[in-house]
Amino acid sequence: MKMAQEKMLLEINQIEVYYEQIAALKGVSLNLERGEILAIIGANGAGKTTLINTISGVLHPRSGSVEFNGDPIHTLPAWKIARKGIMQIPEGRKVFAKQSVLENLELGAYSIKDKSAIKASIEQMYTLFPVLSERRNQLAGTLSGGEQQMLAIARGLMGHPELLLFDEPSMGLSPVMVERVFQTIQEINKQGITILLVEQNAKKSLQIANRAYVLETGRIVLADAAARLLENEQVKQAYLGG
């Protein structure tokens, strides 16, 4: 039993999340294994962003629990959850537009106290995303959409996360950039970071994920290995364009 628990990085148990009186998640449970890429697919309004914001502590469930490394985190404020090692790459990138690329990276490392570790991470990000190095002193708001997405990912990595949450990372990007973003997610995962990926681009996310859940109007309706969901008739019809 103990062994099984340690294998799970995140366990979500029957959470219900409301906006005022409207239920956005109606009893969602899911497990995230250490080291995997888990995809959540679903249409607009299915509750994908609500789920990711509940894990991050931006929203709090009315009932149910979220456990990270065995500790309940669903009552903690968002900033404490970030410091526990869960970073989010928010929908729409949300870089700090009026601050430089370098400052954005430093802000990602806000919870890291060791200055030399921050320096080393910045160099690492510059190697991973050379364009950020070129533009380190430029305001983040002046970057292109794709560059901002790279910066948002790098900013998330700067917090040394155990779990990285991606909310619609391909949204609004050119096909080339979409390709690049999915490649980057795989590379990050290979370095041992567990990934939860929420996407409307179901095909791409199922191609890189180990497992996936299908979310429909606040409920999980399917859960399986990603490869099998790619072959699932229901999924094909609803999310993969027939």
Partner: peptide, 21 residues
């Protein structure tokens, strides 16, 4: 100070960085 300027831009995203707003 940098966290203060970040917070002025977006409270939610600042919290996601671990900043106690």
């Amino acid at each position: 100070g940098k966290a203060m300027r970040a917070t002025a831009q977006n409270h939610t995203v600042s919290q996601l960085m671990g900043i106690n707003v």
